[in-house]
Design a protein around this nucleic acid. Sequence first.
DNA 1: CATGAATGAGCATTCATTCAT
DNA 2: AATGAATGAATGCTCATTCAT
Lengths: 190, 190, 190, 190
Amino acid sequence: MPATPLRKDAARNRRQILQTARAMVDAGATLQLNAVAREADVGVGTVYRHFPTPEALLAALAEERFEAMIAEVRRGVTAPDVRAALHTFLDHALTAYVEDEAFAAEALGPAPTTERTRELRDELVGMIRDLLARAVSEGVLRPGIDAPDLLVLLCGVAYAVKNSPYPDDPAVATRYLKALLNGVLATDAA
Amino acid sequence: MPATPLRKDAARNRRQILQTARAMVDAGATLQLNAVAREADVGVGTVYRHFPTPEALLAALAEERFEAMIAEVRRGVTAPDVRAALHTFLDHALTAYVEDEAFAAEALGPAPTTERTRELRDELVGMIRDLLARAVSEGVLRPGIDAPDLLVLLCGVAYAVKNSPYPDDPAVATRYLKALLNGVLATDAA
Amino acid sequence: MPATPLRKDAARNRRQILQTARAMVDAGATLQLNAVAREADVGVGTVYRHFPTPEALLAALAEERFEAMIAEVRRGVTAPDVRAALHTFLDHALTAYVEDEAFAAEALGPAPTTERTRELRDELVGMIRDLLARAVSEGVLRPGIDAPDLLVLLCGVAYAVKNSPYPDDPAVATRYLKALLNGVLATDAA
Amino acid sequence: MPATPLRKDAARNRRQILQTARAMVDAGATLQLNAVAREADVGVGTVYRHFPTPEALLAALAEERFEAMIAEVRRGVTAPDVRAALHTFLDHALTAYVEDEAFAAEALGPAPTTERTRELRDELVGMIRDLLARAVSEGVLRPGIDAPDLLVLLCGVAYAVKNSPYPDDPAVATRYLKALLNGVLATDAA
DNA sequence: CATGAATGAGCATTCATTCAT
DNA sequence: AATGAATGAATGCTCATTCAT
């Protein structure tokens, strides 16, 4: 809800920039505003106008993901089967982290770059907190790990997936997630 | 075992460079050969002669760590209590990953930068394989996760620790490691 | 006397632009048409329409000053006391130069940017010439310095005032002007 | 007296840079380090190494001039004929200001950019103070204008010379200086 | 072998000006 | 006539790497 709805051409440029940036980020490149401009076939100045810093662009990229995830967790909180909801969420979150560097960066760290991002993240964390609370109270989840912990652990797993020695094995993510869920030990350690 | 044992001054330089680099890496900086040279009070060219690329320097930094770890795992393989040996190893490995960016980078990824590093890593992985095999056969460890997997998962946990929202809590590492060991679910998931 | 008298809103814009520009110049900033537009709360294009170049804007700013000064000199030419008139003029001119960068720029240099400015300047110089002529003929002024010379010398004194090592001393302008009037030597040099 | 005497090639580069910069400044351009590098046929980095900022380069340019001037004033202080010494100094100083923008900038303003420049300027001002003191005590100079005043006034005259409406008249400088020395009025004003 | 000056590609950023809306 | 988004040339600066000394 921008104060002034973007002019048509401005909107097209913005879209193009975001699209290009998304592609670059997904390709693993670090965002260089100049490069984005070149790829997006847009003047440098235009990129700078829309996104004064690389961070702002990254943040914009992350927003959609945040919104989708929030919607999903919201559904999960009230779903009949918490365990299933939790699974689905963890699964999707892991995928998001693995696929989307921009989102992972923004969802972590004490420095959400944008006011908007910060709000979104807080909202997401809040929702997850509720989901976890329910899961714990229903005996599905061990206590001791809170929402921020879980997010960052998931991020860690994503990191592992991305650096896995079996990069072409499609089951890696599932396997690693399962390790986190069930643990690697056969019986509990102190 | 270099063909020609280093001249005394050359050796001193090498040592100085490594020391400085270690300090810089530990301080979280990305290694800039120029900066290392300045700090180490040595000409840029000297650094380049000893370590043609930043990676080579990083690799050299990682070697000690590899050697220490190999020694430890070797002891663990034949220790009476596998579970304890496994714990100690995981604990130390996590610490190593958290503390030593250089080592983590080298222990991972399909591209050990040095012949020497590659050998060391292979040796380490071999030893861990043995340790894990024993642990699985004694029912301590769930099957399904092999040595490379475990290493990368640990790396993921280290990543989580380093990005934890509770950066000043000294128990974070333990808590996260425990999550990996025991899992986060109360009862096994499919 | 524009061919078509400005539309009411156009006039308001013009006024606003001039006002803003005046403030910025007085604040010592170099005129950036973009900045003027922003401050004046007007589109860039509007500024460009009214004043195609920074110089044109500066020139417009200078015009008022020219007019005031011309009026004053005109009075001085026929005043009973040439010496007093001359003093007043020099004093005011110095103040104008010191206070108004825009005016100083326009009053100098072989390139008055606007036809209008050029006319005004020529008119001013003409009047001053008359004043000086009278002053010389009445023995008030040494010969050898003509109107353009005097103007540029005054500008030099203004430059000195603006760069004075005693920037907070309100008497600096008077002191420096006096130096120009009476000279710094006790007795004439060759 | 640099700690380490410059290497031969470094010295050559430095000289080249200074030479080029001098030419550019004399041509009235504002110093752009990149441009200097191009003209001097030297890498940008080289220029930056020698002179981290445009100001540093300007300052270096100014130093020679300072030294020459200091030497001259020193001679003048003890010369038998103060009046003549004063004249010579004023004449040369005016020339320096007119010819050398870099020097003028550095000799003025509360911000001598280099420690070295600052020292030189202070030394110069000190010497001039002595010269003026002698001139006043011998009745050659009117009191009321001190050394910093005189310098800045001279700078003003230089400014006038440079902006003179008679740019090709070689006598302009003399005429304007004379105006400052003897004043423009025939008899003293209050 | 060591040195550190030189290099210049590379990236970031600004701002005067144009032109579609 | 007004707007302001778009443009991209211009400029500033850094830093990895080479190579003369």
